[in-house]
Design a protein around this nucleic acid. Structure first.
Lengths: 84, 84
DNA sequence: ATAATATTTAGATATTTGTCTAAATATTTA
DNA sequence: TAAATATTTAGACAAATATCTAAATATTAT
């Protein structure tokens, strides 16, 4: 859970997840949606990937990122458990 | 959401929430459950309080902390929305 | 009133984190 | 093969964070 909550503890990364909820996007497309540098976005994507919140797939010279809803379920379970 | 995710981004604070899920506890009782100093626990409780994840009530010389499940709902909503 | 107990506040410090620029790697196009 | 494009890696730096000890505040008991 540590990596997941760490990943969620940043506004930019949460917005990336919200973007990927709509559709898969390349690293470049994601970067264009923000005012920060591409290396910084790449770093954020790495943190999201380590938390398994996103997956990536190489498509030629692009890398396509997708939301991993399986892991989202794990967070849900943790939170719901707090209410029991 | 920022303060909430920040508050959740720490193992000790998450464990405090899990303790308070069972029953209300004083600051001292909470501190005894961990190996870190009382001032550090006090700091963690402050962060949880700022995020509105816990509430506190003075009972004589003690301060009783409780889990605020209303805010837990806000996190749930954010997460659930990712899956839609 | 004084001492004891419960908790927080203050100040210091080491670690982690988000950001940047520059350079490296990989792929496609001319 | 050389140039262009997409992305990551490396290294640096300022800001944020978790922890500590010591001191302050508030309440209760002697």
């Amino acid at each position: 859970m540590n990596a997941i909550f760490k990943a969620l503890n940043d506004e930019t990364r949460r917005e990336i997840l919200e973007l990927l909820r709509q559709r898969d996007m390349t690293a470049g497309e994601i970067a264009e949606a923000f005012q920060i540098s591409k290396p910084s976005i790449s770093h954020h994507l790495d943190i999201l990937k380590r938390a398994d919140l996103v997956t990536s797939e190489k498509k030629g010279q692009f890398i396509l990122y997708s939301l991993n809803t399986t892991i989202v379920d794990d967070i849900l379970k943790w939170i719901i458990n707090l209410k029991k």
